[in-house]
């Protein structure tokens, strides 16, 4: 009858029960696995094709493994393929994309977190109406405001630079990211903010000392959304980058889709894979947050 703590209890092995493994379970599992394989097919194809020699590709047999593994496609894709007149590979696009990404992150995260914080935790009478407007703005298709934005950036003299692309990204993602931050900050217990208000009362100090340190998770979620969003964007880069600031996707499209001359599928696939790699790495490394980001993106009032 003595009370031994559960965690200190000696562990005895019992023979595992003869579990009736249900036939339906096995069928379900096989079905799920087959769908998973089907979903993986494009990734598989892009990888094997990028390592094949052009000679092997022209034989057909898209699913075969490379007979000889070669980095030729990768090398050419990285530093030789042509986009329009210039032939510097997707490398140039890679660096442009990074140049676009950094200010985009700063603008969108900075703007959205502060706006979301002000709307969620400070008593502002018209906050509800403003949120509603932001909610609607978050769904306005880019094409609807594209032309005025081109005219504005041209007036500002930044059209055709990476700054234009970065700023447009920051502006366009603001409503959606603000909603995410606001939904997150809304759940901070009001007692905490009230206590902080009594202690210091300063908008910026509460943000810096209390709210920001609590935002770790949501900032990672938003970073993932911004990084994948900006990196994978094509149309904004195409429209605002001009010839001088073409991000990686635009270079890729120029080489593969509108490119002239002999088609080199291995080079095409290597270029596509190089372009897809950064967001894929982010996804596989931080998948948990990625899922959170999606759920955060699903509208929750």
């Amino acid at each position: 009858m003595a009370n031994i703590d559960i965690s200190e209890r000696e562990f005895k092995h019992y023979p595992p029960k003869k579990k009736k493994i249900k036939g339906s379970s096995i069928i379900t599992f096989i079905f799920l696995a087959m769908i998973a394989l089907a979903v993986l097919v494009p990734l598989y194809v892009i990888i094997v094709t990028s390592f094949k020699t052009l000679d092997q590709i022209t034989l057909g047999r898209i699913f075969d493994l490379p007979t000889t593994w070669t980095f030729e496609g990768w090398n050419k894709a990285w530093s030789e393929v042509c986009s329009g007149m210039t032939c510097n590979g997707v490398k140039a696009g890679f660096f442009t994309s990074i140049k676009i990404l950094i200010p985009s992150i700063a603008i969108s995260v900075g703007l959205a977190s502060i706006t979301g914080y002000a709307l969620a935790l400070w008593k502002i009478k018209w906050a509800g109406s403003f949120l509603f407007v932001l909610f609607i703005c978050a769904f306005v298709p880019f094409q609807v405001i594209m032309i005025p934005l081109v005219l504005i950036t041209a007036k500002l003299g930044i059209y055709g630079t990476f700054w234009a692309v970065a700023i447009v990204h920051g502006v366009l993602s603001m409503p959606f990211l603000t909603l995410i931050f606001r939904n997150f900050y809304k759940d901070i217990p009001p007692e905490l903010i009230n206590a902080a208000l009594m202690d210091s009362g300063s908008f910026w100090r509460i943000f810096g000392e209390i709210v920001l340190p609590m935002s770790g998770n949501i900032i990672i979620v938003v970073l993932i959304l911004v990084i994948t969003g900006v990196w994978n964007d094509f149309l904004i880069g195409l429209t605002f980058g001009g010839f001088g600031a073409q991000p990686m996707t635009v270079i890729l499209a120029n080489t593969v889709i509108t490119g002239t001359g002999a088609v080199r599928y291995n080079v095409d696939m290597a270029a596509a894979l190089l372009t897809a790699l950064p967001p894929l790495i982010v996804y596989f490394a931080l998948g948990k947050f990625f899922v959170q980001g999606i759920s955060a993106g699903a509208i929750k009032g």
């Binding site: 559960i6 209890r9 562990f11 005895k12 019992y14």
Partner: peptide, 13 residues
């Protein structure tokens, strides 16, 4: 009756 969750024995005999 014995119940174990992983290596924790919740109920024993």
């Amino acid at each position: 009756i014995v119940k174990q969750y992983g290596y924790v024995t919740v109920l024993e005999d």
